[in-house]
Write a protein that binds this DNA or RNA. Structure first.
Length: 849
DNA sequence: TGATCCCGCCAACGT
DNA sequence: ACGTTGGCGGGATCA
């Protein structure tokens, strides 16, 4: 718990405030980054506002702020309480803050002003909901709204009960990449078009015919509920959070963002968004109230996103009239992320040893309160293991027959059909194999492997080098000396991720290096089997620019700034946001390469995908993406780096099932974390293999998944490969001996695995068996669940740590969870989505208010 | 009016 | 049983 509860308000400077706020911060750590140093006024409501204002980008909300804030500073708000007493009724009322002053957007600004965009790794920015609510003078409920949205962007993660960790924008680029990817996989673009088309049709020929076709696709698709998309790293928290059915805000927020990222003009009208999000749209009859509610929620989300300056409100004018819409003003999401910068260091970094320990300890302190040592202990063994794994992997890859490119392979989360757990998958911790159903058919040519390998290298380099994807944390001026803190490597903890593969599906990264894990609802899982056709459909996946179907829209912002074209994202970026991120030059090369590869793959593979399409098509992946946790999971990060490289190379495979989630951490993450080179220590490397291993394809196949020929397709080599990895994985996981991990429930069979590497072998065997079974078809059974990683919680010493995982993730039927299936699910029934025809475009104009 | 969206009831969850 | 989360939608404000 935070030590301080004292309100900062009064005397501190904004900066100070921050610092104080975070009791937990380590002294050493650099001070919070104050974004531009703010004036050091006493902390008064007013000052607060000022901060906000200054902080706030002018573009967004400028109007409101200027109006509201400037004129009636919120002083009123805070001051009021005192005044109130004296005032008579009317006066009192007058003094009351207007509705606007209480807006979520404003509140969000205040909230954001409290934390640096790019907090240094060292500092732990803990957020205590109670405190915040109190300080901001709002009910907690409101804070939840904000936090939930921030969480969807992985800007915060939940640590424990009333507590969240602030990550700022470090993970933002990754998150966005992941979201974009998922959005593409979901075919959101098509869905949007569909909707528009329908509307269009409606206009003219009222119902005439928009029969099923039109309707269908939509319904089928989205319906599914999604889960949350998580980035590797942040998962822990997610896990806990996810356990619940997070139905809305979080997920809705991610979906909403996805819409922006996939749509060409990057302008999304509320109406369309609501329909898609409802997914449900089942069949047309949206009921009004539902729709209305959705819209309400979208406003809530939009307000927060606006405060983050990721979107801004505009109006789209169509024939019908003006419709409220939002335009994306956030950073462009590049397919790949990569920066150069640290890589060298990271690569070079010496293995962790004593020093690492230190760092690690810090980490653990922050993130995981008590455990650290253990991990280290295991080191050596792990290393060996890793190496061996690596070797194997190499062999495999190089092998002529080399199995399908690993990249392609994906693991699917096996969710039980009935269960609700939406999200599960945890990458990390346990590896349970069981569920895996089949692996995917994608028989992709292997040649890719070779290339990949090569690429991977380069990619790695890139990744490594570019530490920050987005985040460059260091705020100028800020104290932090990233270097100082060793990265918290807690290597140990990390490991797990790979295994987790089990549950989560690993997606090959398409262009982006980003990895994410998607959690699906069980129901979805079935459906999902297929790969997303989207790729196929869209030959030009990435293009952000001109879109395919563009609507002619004119966007105008209020301020009249760049409003016009909705598109140039570049402009919009704020300096703050984009800090380091964009420097992608070097990386770009990598990207290009990877893309090229991808393209090739696409070309090659298309057929397969198509096939998959037919059957029951749609799947919309819904998931939650988790970014790597920064410090927390330093290890992972390390792993990820390696993987990343691979991924990078591999990415092409877009097609995977939407469901899958990628676990691997990206280099960027590391950067974000500010983890020093350490991460890359041998351990990491070692791990990476594992993580990679995870990649092997296993798709949860639905039993019926016609498309996937998974089993059949597996080549023995592949199978072996897969098995090996799988087997390894578990071992690896355990090795780390991270307490957390340990707890994680392992697959029933696997569970025994001891942490030590030695045990691995036996374990492997088990695993293999399981896998085989799965392949055979057993896997489908819903029983087993995924495991998860534990979540990290700050609280030291609580024994329960592990609990989260178990409980949440593993809920078994019968338990509390059994919840009503999502309504959606039922209807979600499958509808196939076929490619959507392009919709005739209408003219739209976007205007500002 | 229609667009926004604050407010807070109350259920699901967690402890 | 009680505290935390957060879905949800009535109805107040705004434009």
């Amino acid at each position: 718990r935070s030590a301080f509860s004292t309100p900062l308000k009064q005397a501190a400077t904004s900066r100070v405030v921050l610092t104080e706020r975070q009791p937990d911060c380590q002294p050493l750590t650099t001070p919070p980054k104050p974004k531009e140093a703010l004036p050091a006024d006493p902390w008064t409501p007013t000052s607060n506002l000022k901060m906000l204002i200054s902080a706030a980008s002018p573009e967004i909300r400028s109007r409101e702020q200027s109006r509201e804030l400037s004129n009636t500073p919120s002083e009123v708000l805070q001051a009021k309480p005192c005044l109130q007493e004296h005032l008579s009724g009317d006066e009192y009322e007058k003094s009351q803050p207007s509705r606007k002053e209480k807006s979520l957007g404003l509140l969000c600004h205040k909230f954001l002003a409290r934390y640096p965009d790019y907090p240094s790794a060292a500092e732990n920015n803990y957020i205590c909901l109670d405190e915040v609510a109190e300080e901001l003078n709002v009910e907690r409920r409101r804070i939840y709204d904000i936090v939930n949205v921030l969480e969807s962007l992985h800007m915060v993660s939940r640590l424990a009960k009333n507590r969240y960790a602030w990550h700022g924008r470090h993970n933002l680029s990754k998150t966005l990449q992941a979201l974009k990817k998922v959005g593409e996989e979901n075919k959101y673009t098509q869905q949007i078009q569909m909707i528009k088309k329908r509307e269009y049709e409606h206009e003219f020929d009222l119902d005439g015919e928009r029969n099923e076709e039109t309707a269908r696709p939509l319904g089928s698709n989205e319906h599914s509920e999604m889960s949350f998309v998580e980035l590797p790293g942040m998962e822990f928290r997610a896990a806990s959070v996810n356990s619940r059915k997070d139905k809305s805000l979080r997920v809705m927020s991610q979906k909403f963002v996805m819409l922006f990222l996939v749509s060409t003009p990057q302008v999304v009208s509320l109406e369309v968004a609501a329909k898609i999000l409802i997914g449900e749209d089942q069949l047309e009859d949206l009921d009004k109230s539902k729709f209305k509610t959705k819209i309400r929620r979208l406003y809530d989300i939009a307000n927060v996103l606006s405060s983050l300056e990721l979107i801004k409100k505009v109006h789209v004018t169509e024939e019908r009239g003006r419709k409220p819409a939002f335009k994306w003003t956030g950073p462009e999401v590049l397919p790949n992320v990569q920066d150069t910068k640290l890589e060298t260091t990271s690569m070079t970094c010496p293995p962790p040893t004593s020093e690492s320990i230190t760092s690690k300890e810090q980490c653990s302190k922050n993130l995981f309160p008590s455990r650290g040592k253990q991990n280290f202990t295991r080191h050596p063994s792990l290393i060996k293991l890793v190496k061996s794994i690596e070797n194997d992997r190499r062999k495999i890859q190089s092998a002529p027959t080399s199995p399908v490119k690993t990249s392609a392979s994906t693991f699917v989360l096996p969710l039980q059909p009935g269960t609700n757990q939406n999200l599960l998958a945890f990458p990390s911790k346990t590896a349970q194999v069981p569920e895996v159903a089949e692996h995917q058919p994608e028989g992709q040519p292997k040649k890719a492997n070779e290339m990949q390998t090569k690429l991977s290298r380069s990619a790695l380099e890139c990744d490594l080098s570019s530490p920050e994807v987005g985040p460059k944390p260091e705020a100028p001026g800020t104290t932090a000396a990233p270097s100082q803190q060793p990265a918290p490597t807690q290597p140990l903890h990390v490991c797990p991720p790979s295994h987790s593969s089990v549950s989560p599906v690993m997606l090959p990264h398409t262009h982006s290096a980003v990895s994410y894990a998607i959690y699906l609802h069980p129901s979805q899982a079935h459906t999902v089997t297929t790969y997303s056709p989207s790729f196929m459909l869209q030959p030009l996946p990435c293009a952000n620019g001109t879109g395919i179907k563009g609507i002619n829209s004119k966007v105008t912002t209020e301020e009249g700034d760049n409003q016009t074209a909705a598109d140039d994202p570049t402009k919009s970026l704020t300096a703050k946001e984009r800090p380091p991120v964009k420097s992608e030059t070097p990386p770009q090369k990598c990207l290009k390469r990877s893309q090229e590869l991808q393209e090739n793959d696409l070309i090659k593979r298309p057929r397969i995908d198509k096939e998959s399409l037919d059957p029951s098509p749609t799947f919309f992946p819904s998931g939650y993406l988790i970014p790597l946790a920064q410090c927390t999971h330093g290890n992972k990060a390390a792993l990820s780096t390696t993987e990343k490289a691979r991924i990078c190379s591999l990415q092409h495979t877009t097609y995977h099932s939407p469901v899958a989630g990628v676990i691997p951490v990206t280099a960027s993450e590391l950067k974000a974390v500010n983890i020093p080179a350490f991460h890359i220590t041998p351990l990491n490397i070692m791990l990476s293999p594992t993580s990679i291993a995870a990649a092997p394809v296993l798709s949860n196949s639905c039993p019926n998944s016609s498309n996937t020929s998974s089993a059949q397709n597996l080549s023995s080599p592949v199978l072996n490969f897969t098995l090996q990895h799988i087997g390894l994985i578990p071992a690896g996981v355990q090795v780390p001996a991270n307490p957390l991990l340990q707890h994680v429930p392992v697959a029933s069979q696997a569970d025994n695995v001891s942490h030590s590497s030695e045990n691995v072998n036996s374990q492997e065997e088990k695993v293999r068996k399981n896998i085989l079974q799965l392949l055979a078809g057993d896997g489908l059974s819903g029983d087993y669940h995924s495991f998860t990683a534990g979540e990290f919680r700050p609280v030291p010493k609580e024994p329960q740590e592990p609990r989260t995982v178990t409980e949440n993730f593993f809920r078994t039927p019968g338990g509390p969870n059994t919840e009503p299936s999502l309504g959606a699910a039922s209807d979600g029934a499958v509808r196939t989505s076929q490619g959507m025809p392009y919709i005739p475009q209408r003219k739209l104009e976007v205007s500002e208010d």
